[in-house]
Simulated assay, not measured.
Amino acid sequence: MLGIVAAVLFFISFLINAADISTNDVFSSTNVMLIGLALLALHVAGVGSGWNTRGRRR
């Protein structure tokens, strides 16, 4: 799930950069890209992948 959100943020960052849209400092293409990289790192680390149930095997 976090990987999909990161991909969407990368696409938004690309559109901001490619269209040369003037935004404020908070939503610049670099900041959106860095948020996407942070979400991608969390995805690779396994955060947000769901519950891990460890049942006993008999």
Score class of each variant (00 low, 15 high):
12 I>R: 09
48 G>R: 05
40 L>C: 01
50 G>H: 08
25 D>R: 04
46 G>V: 03
51 W>F: 10
21 I>E: 04
5 V>W: 00
10 F>V: 05
15 L>A: 07
37 L>R: 03
37 L>F: 13
39 L>G: 00
20 D>V: 03
9 L>R: 11
45 A>F: 14
29 S>H: 11
22 S>K: 10
56 R>N: 06
49 S>R: 13
39 L>V: 10
55 G>I: 05
56 R>I: 08
46 G>E: 10
12 I>Y: 09
35 I>Y: 14
2 L>E: 01
36 G>W: 07
24 N>R: 00
16 I>S: 06
21 I>C: 08
51 W>K: 10
57 R>V: 15
47 V>Q: 01
2 L>F: 09
28 S>Y: 00
22 S>I: 00
6 A>W: 01
3 G>T: 07
18 A>N: 11
46 G>L: 10
55 G>F: 08
42 L>A: 13
53 T>V: 11
14 F>E: 15
39 L>D: 06
23 T>S: 14
18 A>S: 13
6 A>F: 03
17 N>V: 00
31 N>R: 15
4 I>L: 09
57 R>Y: 11
43 H>S: 06
4 I>S: 07
21 I>S: 06
56 R>G: 00
48 G>F: 05
3 G>I: 00
11 F>C: 05
26 V>M: 10
26 V>F: 13
8 V>L: 09
34 L>T: 03
31 N>H: 15
38 A>K: 11
19 A>T: 13
44 V>E: 06
1 M>W: 12
12 I>W: 03
14 F>C: 13
